[in-house]
């Protein structure tokens, strides 16, 4: 399925804004992303499997924090970072 990558993580995807990844759940999808783009997952998911505080994942139009959420090939995944800082 298509995964939209925010600019802070595109150093891992050779600057691609949209990449492909597979998985029946968000957990599986993120491990597949990390297999294709090593190091990406730990920047957005901590060692206890929690999405980092300022990161968000959308499945289609819905913000999801539960990584066991099921997904399928028709879904579009958007990873974004909260807009904050200075």
């Amino acid at each position: 399925m298509k995964v939209r990558i925010p600019s802070p993580l595109r150093s891992y995807t050779q600057q691609q804004a949209v990449v492909d990844a597979d998985g029946a759940t968000l957990t599986e999808l993120l491990f597949d992303l990390d297999r294709r783009y090593p190091g990406l997952r730990f920047r957005m998911v901590d060692e206890q499997g929690r999405i980092r505080k300022h990161m968000k994942i959308f499945v289609n139009d819905e913000s999801v924090r539960e990584l066991e959420t099921r997904v399928d090939a028709r879904d579009e995944i958007t990873i974004m970072q909260a807009l904050s800082g200075g």
Binding site: P8, L9, F42, Q81, S84, G85
Partner: peptide, 8 residues
């Protein structure tokens, strides 16, 4: 790290 991304 960054303000949003984890440490490395």
């Amino acid at each position: 790290r960054t303000g949003h991304l984890g440490p490395t």
